[in-house]
Design a protein around this nucleic acid. Structure first.
Lengths: 221, 221
DNA sequence: CGCGCCATTGACACGAGTCAAGACGCGTGG
DNA sequence: CCACGCGTCTTGACTCGTGTCAATGGCGCG
């Protein structure tokens, strides 16, 4: 993230503000006006958009060092989505005028962000294919695999997301998600490790392919 | 698209090539190696990605003056998707080294593309929500509405896409799509105007909200 | 004329959403 | 300290949307 000159870093330090906010806090909401961009210094957050029926669709999770909230600043429009903290987090706010100035003056930063966006793009396309073609079972295992990279600590993968958040990530409802998790537990790929339903994934390799396998078994049987 | 200096325009003219290709032609395919980017000078094309089961998912259509194939060039990776012409088209090929040079030297171009990408982003997020939450009927009417902007000529909206392409755009199968179109014809929102099944939309305003309305009626009845 | 491609329609089955109820833990207040 | 209420997770029964499979019909082309 730091392709800035020393002088530029200084201006960021001077003009930006760092705040610590509690879990559940909304950073911005749909149709709000953007005043700048954010970088997550610690913690995690979800980016989601609310559908017409009121159901949320989480399209991205952000972790340490992720930049978010950039798009509406670039195109001078309102937020199309909302951002909510999943944990107590620390975030850096960079005001719009400054990020715009930096982008204008630092071509290197510009190119780096272009590259980042291109990478995100591929993820989005893959997600679209997933949502339009895969079964819920496959989506759940794909999403859990995606989450495993964000939640691996000390060689253990522990996912403390609520069933609602998980289902909003998978594009399904709580009940269906729970049933799929049930099957995954039967196959010993993961467990709930406390009364709150926190998940621990214990067989990542098999989880990755589980979705496809289940479909196949069904067709062969 | 033209935020280039005269000198730069000259270099584009010298280093790029224009070709005319027939309908059905593949411009690039998944896992191919990118040698540059393309601008569609005339005609139309579809960008799609093939799912594991072989079904295609069309995530974007390009029309005159659209730039495509940029992402893998920026991140030096293979194509994640395929591009196929929907009509006889003329396209401009800009080799990778040149577009990279332009981006590096012309900050203005860089910023413009950032803006374009930000706009595309919002479209992608909306599409994701659509695919993960809306019924087929709603998706079809949303997609047709999207297509109406691309296919309006002389105040008539005529869509010559095959049922397969339409269903790949809507994330459903041909048969289900046909049934929805049948309902739309019953409600006099569109017609097939020839033996090939070419569609003409005649009531765009009602089409836009048709999806939601149908759901509501069903719940009220 | 016959073959093949595409659009269309019908019958059927399964996946997944909805509704309802129960289980469990947690906090608050009597 | 216990009772109650609230929120979340879980399970069951049921319905319906949508995918699958199969058959038909129209049209163009060799």
């Amino acid at each position: 993230m730091k392709c800035l000159t020393d002088e530029e870093k200084l201006s960021v330090e001077k003009e930006s503000t760092t705040t610590t906010l509690p879990k559940g806090q909304l950073v911005f909401t749909e149709n709000g006006i953007p005043f700048g961009v954010y970088i997550l210094l610690s913690g995690k957050l979800k980016l989601y958009k609310t559908g017409n029926t009121g159901k949320k669709h989480i399209f991205q999770l952000c972790v340490k060092n992720d930049l978010f909230g950039l798009h509406p600043v670039l195109k001078d429009s309102k937020y199309p989505d909302s951002a909510e903290l999943l944990e107590d987090s620390e975030l850096l706010f960079i005001p719009a005028f400054l990020i715009k100035k930096l982008l204008k003056e630092n071509n290197n930063l510009c190119l780096t962000i272009l590259k980042v966006l291109s990478t995100e793009f591929e993820r989005f396309i893959e997600q679209e294919v997933m949502f339009s073609q895969k079964s819920v079972a496959q989506r759940v295992s794909t999403v859990l695999f995606y989450l495993s990279r964000l939640y691996e600590v000390d060689n253990r993968i522990i996912i403390p997301l609520s069933r609602n958040d998980l289902s909003d990530l998978c594009g399904t409802v709580k009940e269906t998600l729970v049933r799929v998790l049930h099957d995954l537990k039967e196959d010993k790929l993961l467990y709930t490790i406390d009364s709150k339903g926190t998940l621990e994934i214990v067989d990542l390799a098999r989880l990755k392919s589980w979705g496809e396998i289940v479909e196949k078994e069904f067709n062969d049987e």
